[in-house]
Design a protein around this nucleic acid. Structure first.
Lengths: 112, 112
DNA sequence: CAGTATCCCGGCAGATACTG
DNA sequence: CAGTATCTGCCGGGATACTG
C-alpha cells in the first residue's frame, strides 16, 4: 500500500454521514418503523406506540423527519386538532436497506 | 387497519437498533471507512486520517468496535509499541449495505 | 507509539405544565 | 388533540497531560 496522504471521503460531509444523522438518534428508527407499519397515523396514536417518548422529543423528531423529506404531515382543519403522519417514497425506499442492516446484525449476532 | 394494540418490534432490542448503536456515534462511520480503505492500519496512522479526533474518543471507539466484532486488534510485541487494526468479515459484509445507504441518500438529495 | 487519567462542556433527551 | 415552553440532568465527546 502506497503511503499517500490519503483522506477518507467521510471526512467531508459524505452521504453516508448525512444518512446517519437523519436516521440516528434515540427514537428515529422506532418512529420510522411505526409509521412504515401503520399507514397514516395520528400524533397521539404514534405516541402510544412509542412507549415512553415525551412530547418534546417526539415533536422535534417528527419535525426533523418532515424537514428532510422522510415523513409528511397532514393537518386536518378540525376541532379538536387532527394531524396525521405517513412515510414518503424516500422513506419507503429506505426500508429495504434497513432490513438488510437488520439481517446483517442478526447474522453476526452482534451484541453491543 | 384494525386497531389492535400494536407495538413496533423496534420497541424491544431489535437487530436494527443494535446495528445503529454499533455504527452510530460521531466517528464510528469514519473509522470503519478508513479501516475498510486501508487494510491494516496502525493507531497513529488512523488518527491522522481522522483529522481532529482525540485519543480518548478514538481509543474508546476502537475498543467498542473490537468488542462487537467489527475490527480486530493486533498487538506486536515490539518497542516502541505497535498495534494494527483491520476490519473483520462481519465489517466487510456491512460495507455494501452502507454503500446502498449512501446511494439512497444521494438519490434523494437528503439535507440535514 | 499507543494508549490511559482527569477534568470539562454542550447538547440531546426527558419531565412537567401549559395552550390554540 | 397536538403540540409548545421551560427547566433539568446526564453523558457523549473533547482537551490536555501523563505512562508502559
Amino acid at each position: 500500500m502506497i503511503e499517500t496522504h490519503y483522506s477518507c471521503p467521510c471526512m467531508e460531509q459524505c452521504p453516508l454521514n448525512r444518512a446517519m444523522q437523519l436516521i440516528g438518534g434515540k427514537w428515529k428508527m422506532q418512529i420510522i418503523c411505526s409509521l412504515n407499519n401503520g399507514g397514516s397515523i395520528r400524533y397521539n396514536h404514534l405516541k402510544q406506540r412509542l412507549d415512553g417518548i415525551s412530547n418534546t422529543v417526539l415533536a422535534k423528531a417528527l419535525k426533523e423527519l418532515e424537514e428532510c423529506g422522510l415523513v409528511t404531515r397532514h393537518e386536518f382543519m378540525e376541532v379538536p386538532a387532527r394531524v396525521e403522519y405517513r412515510t414518503t417514497k424516500a422513506c419507503d425506499d429506505l426500508i429495504p436497506i434497513l432490513d438488510s442492516l437488520s439481517d446483517w446484525c442478526e447474522k453476526y449476532e452482534m451484541k453491543e
